[in-house]
């Protein structure tokens, strides 16, 4: 499995609030979560790409993540234009 930098992901799970519905497991593209004892657990934080799917879908807001595109060109453009960090704008390069 390909990995980017360790210990940087901003993903946080409030285990007390979690109801163990499993929706985060269904939406995560990198198998960051697993279900144990009727609760979700973060089992692979370094695999998190901060897409934000889990936090957006969690019905009890037990998850939080500073989500955004992990895209250098997008971040550079965001810094230069002061807006929009995503790289997928119409008419330009990536994705």
């Amino acid at each position: 499995m390909m990995r980017h930098l360790k210990n940087v992901a901003t993903l946080k799970l409030d285990i007390e609030t979690c109801t163990g519905c499993g929706l985060c497991i269904a939406v995560c593209p990198h198998a960051v979560f697993a279900l144990a004892d009727s609760k979700a657990h973060i089992i692979d934080l370094d695999a998190c790409m901060e897409c934000g799917a889990c936090a957006r879908n969690c019905p009890v807001s037990a998850l939080s993540v500073d989500s955004g595109a992990g895209c250098a060109s997008g971040i550079i453009k965001g810094l230069l234009n002061g807006s929009g960090e995503c790289c997928c704008d119409k008419g330009n390069g990536c994705c």
Binding site: M2, A9, G70, C71, I75
Partner: peptide, 14 residues
């Protein structure tokens, strides 16, 4: 810049 095309980099990491 290939981070944007790749499928596994996070914004914090980049």
């Amino acid at each position: 810049n290939f981070t944007g095309t790749s499928t596994y980099t996070s914004m914090s990491g980049v």
